[in-house]
């Protein structure tokens, strides 16, 4: 029996790097916070995840039934669907440090 210490971790890390980031941004149509959030999110992704991300913007005014699924209360909210685990971040993403922690973006570097 051979013990392989650290091997799963070693295997996991590069896969995560290669993985596509799926992000959902819940917004409400005309709200300025929503627009700020989208702009901020886009900027973060460009600088940290270039070419490896996809942002889905969900307008709850048009699709209110989707709010229940991700338990959305606050607007705006970003949900990181992939990579797992799911992470949620609320606010207009103006606090950079918090966004890095909240979305665990440093892992992507």
């Amino acid at each position: 029996m051979k013990i392989k210490p650290g091997k799963p971790r070693a295997a996991h890390a590069p896969r995560q790097l290669a993985q596509l980031w799926q992000l959902r941004l819940y917004v409400v149509d005309q709200s300025p916070q929503s627009r700020t959030a989208f702009a901020n999110l886009k900027q973060f992704c460009e600088s940290h995840l270039k070419g490896r991300y996809r942002i889905t913007v969900i307008d709850l005014v048009k699709q209110p039934q989707l709010a229940k699924g991700d338990q959305i209360l606050a607007i705006p909210t970003v949900v990181r669907k992939l990579p797992k685990p799911v992470r949620t971040l609320i606010g207009n993403l103006s606090d950079t440090a918090r966004v890095l922690v909240g979305l665990d973006l440093r892992a992507a570097d």
């Binding site: 916070q33 901020n40 959305i72 606050a74 607007i75 705006p76 992470r87 609320i90 993403l93 606090d95």
Partner: peptide, 25 residues
């Protein structure tokens, strides 16, 4: 409505429009 402090981070300003939307819906 499930909301757990440990499951999300906060960054910047927000409102509870999501709650309104859900309730309204």
């Amino acid at each position: 409505v499930h909301i757990e402090r440990s499951e999300f981070q906060e960054s910047g300003e927000y409102d509870l429009e999501g709650l309104f939307v859900r309730l309204n819906h």
